[in-house]
Simulated scan of single mutants.
Amino acid sequence: NEVTKLESQYKPIFSANHYVGCTGSQPSTRGFTCSVWQLFHYLTVQAARTEISQDPLEILQAMHGYIKHFFGCTNCAEHFQAMATKRKIWSTPNKDDAVLWLWAAHNEVNNRLAGDSTEDPLFPKIQFPSQSSCSGCYKQPISPAIMETNWDKNAVLSFLKNIHNPEYISRYGVEHEELLQPTIEKLRQKRMIGNVFSDMDMRMGMLLYVFCIGMMVIAFKLFAFKGYRKKPYGHDLLGKV
């Protein structure tokens, strides 16, 4: 009943099984689970970009509750809850750290499932982002013996905020694009049109201002000195004697 009420309140709510950005090379790989990860990454970034709520746990708590109560894979849900406890999900101090918490958790899951039967051979479970997609996200290791990736977390945060920015998300395969936030190109065009109209309005305003001043000067000449005109006398008609 609660879900039905919320669907009615926040419609349109979509339900689909066509995962364009998460299509796997096999029917059993990627798809829904990939899309769930992408959705929550997007939501943590959106929460960090807005001031609607100051709660750093808003998105992480929603994801934790969804996976705990609704996710179809019980084993996966238990693994996620154990990892969340180990990584102290409830101690996340701010919204930027929530973005990084989910990123680190996803990389831990990728590391655990790398080479697993659920892995798509064309989309291996790597530590994200790769060096080719974000070379600045990697620091040079202090020692060659250190195997753990040495991340520049500030660079990672900027990278995540960029790729999950709604202005840059691909619209490929989207059937109802008008329901999404505008792309960066559309926002740029809108600003250009707005600037054109602003300049035009300014020119029209200046012309109207000059026209009004001119009309006031003319009105002043016609009416202001009307009572001071020289009165006609008879000798003026006959000429001076």
Rank of each mutant, 00 (worst) to 15 (best):
E2P: 02
V3D: 06
S8G: 00
Y10S: 03
P12H: 08
S15Q: 07
N17G: 11
V20T: 14
C22R: 00
G24F: 11
P27A: 05
P27V: 00
S28N: 02
R30N: 14
R30A: 00
T33S: 13
T33L: 14
C34H: 11
C34M: 05
S35N: 02
S35A: 15
W37A: 06
L39F: 13
L39P: 08
Y42C: 04
L43W: 09
L43A: 15
R49Q: 15
R49P: 00
R49M: 12
I52R: 13
I52E: 05
I59V: 15
L60K: 05
L60I: 07
Q61S: 12
A62C: 03
H64L: 12
Y66S: 10
I67H: 00
K68T: 13
H69M: 07
F70K: 06
G72E: 03
G72S: 08
G72A: 00
C73D: 15
N75Y: 12
E78H: 09
H79N: 09
H79C: 03
H79K: 08
A82M: 14
A84N: 02
K86M: 14
K86G: 07
R87G: 05
I89T: 05
W90H: 11
N94V: 07
N94M: 03
D97C: 10
D97F: 10
D97M: 12
A98P: 11
L102A: 03
L102K: 10
W103L: 11
A104Q: 09
N107Q: 06
N107P: 02
E108T: 08
E108Q: 07
A114D: 02
D116G: 04
P121S: 12
K125M: 12
K125S: 09
K125V: 02
S130C: 12
S130V: 00
S132A: 15
S133R: 12
C134Q: 03
Y138A: 07
P141C: 06
A145T: 10
M147N: 04
T149E: 11
N150A: 15
D152H: 04
K153M: 05
V156I: 14
V156D: 04
L157R: 10
F159A: 06
F159H: 15
F159Q: 09
I163A: 00
I163L: 01
N165W: 09
S170M: 13
R171A: 05
G173K: 10
G173S: 07
E175T: 12
E178S: 12
P182F: 08
T183S: 15
E185C: 00
E185Q: 09
K186C: 01
L187C: 04
R188T: 14
R188I: 04
Q189F: 07
Q189G: 02
Q189M: 11
R191L: 06
R191K: 15
G194Y: 04
G194M: 09
V196I: 15
V196N: 08
M200E: 02
M200H: 04
R203Y: 15
M204F: 13
G205T: 13
M206A: 12
L207T: 11
I213K: 06
G214Q: 03
M215F: 07
M216F: 14
I218C: 06
K226A: 06
Y228C: 05
Y228I: 07
K230S: 02
P232K: 01
P232S: 02
Y233E: 11
Y233F: 11
Y233N: 06
Y233H: 00
Y233T: 13
D236K: 03
L238E: 01
L238N: 01
V241P: 04
